[in-house]
Amino acid sequence: MVEAGHAPGQVGPVRKAVRESLIKAGVLKAHAQDVPVGLYGTERKDLLMRLIGGALDYIAPLALLGHADEELLALVATPNRKAMLVVDRRIVAEDDNVCQLTLAAPDGTKLRPWHAGAHIDIFLPSGRVRQYSLCGDPRREREYRIAVRRIPDGGGGSVEAHTLRVGDLVEISQPRNAFMMPLPGSASAKKKLRFVAGGIGITPILPMARLADRLCLDWSMLYTGRHPSSLPFLDEVAAFGPRARVRTDDEHGLPSPADLLDGVDGDTAVYACGPPPMIETIRRGIGHEVELHFERFSPPPVVNGVAFEAVLGRSGEVVEVGADESALAAIRRVKPNVGYSCQQGFCGTCVQRVLDGAVDHRDSTLTDLQREQGQMLVCVSRSKDGGRLTFDL
């Protein structure tokens, strides 16, 4: 699952609310399915989604002026949170470190539809927000299934999630998808699919493989990890037969690009999810003609980083940010309760306002308007040229 929210002000729900209000007013037509938030797991930015997101930042104030009534204002203020009941809990890896949770509406009603690659936010009792991929079957309309790997020395979210029990209530967001799978012969010009999963990275890959198998597409999977006992859902992977191969480091050593991409050619779209070293290995070995989509489950390494100072404007405290660490990591040394989730510049949970200084924006999430307003995702973005940044903290 993704260990990874929206920026303060609930940008996502505002856009959704404005869209719904425009549909009511007859300005937009409703569609059978939601437009995906973005496709940022691909090698190229999804320009169309960025343009739509940016346009809604300008449409929103106009829509509110034209249709400002109590119903609309209440809609805009509605948070993207839904109470869910834990209806099943089970351990799905031999080492006991991966827990599967099945969630359902307390009244048993149908849930929002989702597509392979989607994830949800989990709002844990402590206030932590984490993101986890949906790994069940989208055809099961009354439940969402996630799985969480316990990381004792992590940020505490996975450990807390492991304390949830059947009967507990927990709030979640609606599903959204940043790891869409265009199908060969439709939205993709490729003819074959290759899935590469590393450890808990199997969670978004499972629904993709099930869909590919059900549609009789040409697909294959490599599932890799340290040792068999650490790998969740081995029984479900084995059910795919010879198309899905398991490879572990204890038996074969660390995989090379050739190992991960065996049989991949220019007619193949690769979908990979796992730790940064695995993703980087794939990126090094993949050809330019191969279509690559990926999702990470931990922070990417800092590239071409320059050390700088972060000033906490409310206290005046100065924090040194190393060349190889994120501003988020440095700030959390002195303010451990600062919100964060994905640590990859996607979810928006860690957004902070910059009062002074030039920002090197390294995310694909914030719109130009948000950046002009001083917003910065401190998990990936940095100071430009090492200059001091002052935050509203």
Rank of each mutant, 00 (worst) to 15 (best):
V148A: 00
A238R: 09
R243P: 00
P207G: 14
G225H: 00
R142Y: 04
V148R: 02
G225Y: 01
G198T: 13
D153A: 15
E171M: 03
A187N: 07
A238H: 03
Y223K: 04
L183G: 13
C216M: 10
E160H: 05
R176D: 05
V159T: 11
I122Y: 09
P152M: 03
R226F: 14
G199A: 03
G201H: 05
L169F: 15
L134N: 09
L234R: 12
Q174H: 10
P228V: 14
L234M: 15
P204G: 08
M221S: 04
Y223C: 04
R145D: 04
G136P: 00
M208Q: 12
A238M: 02
S230I: 06
I205E: 09
M180W: 04
P204N: 06
Y132M: 13
S158E: 08
P138C: 11
S126L: 11
P232L: 15
M208P: 03
Y132T: 05
P175T: 13
M208L: 03
L217G: 02
I202L: 13
S186I: 07
S173P: 01
A147H: 07
G199T: 07
A238Y: 04
F123S: 11
S220P: 06
H227D: 10
G199V: 10
R139Y: 09
R194S: 14
Q174P: 04
P204R: 05
R176Q: 13
E160A: 04
K192L: 10
I172F: 05
S230G: 09
Y144N: 10
R210P: 00
F179R: 08
D213E: 09
D235P: 07
F233M: 14
D168E: 10
C216Q: 15
R145F: 00
D121C: 12
E236L: 14
S220D: 15
R142H: 06
V148P: 00
A244I: 10
Q131P: 10
T203Q: 00
S188N: 01
P182V: 02
V129N: 13
P207E: 15
R243W: 05
G185S: 05
R139H: 06
E160V: 01
I146L: 09
P175S: 08
D168A: 03
P207Q: 12
D235H: 12
Q174F: 12
I172Y: 10
G199I: 13
L169A: 08
M181P: 03
R142K: 09
R150S: 03
L211V: 13
S186L: 06
S230T: 12
D235M: 06
G198D: 05
M208H: 01
A197E: 05
K190D: 12
P182Q: 08
D168I: 04
T163S: 11
R210G: 00
N177K: 06
D218G: 13
C135D: 04
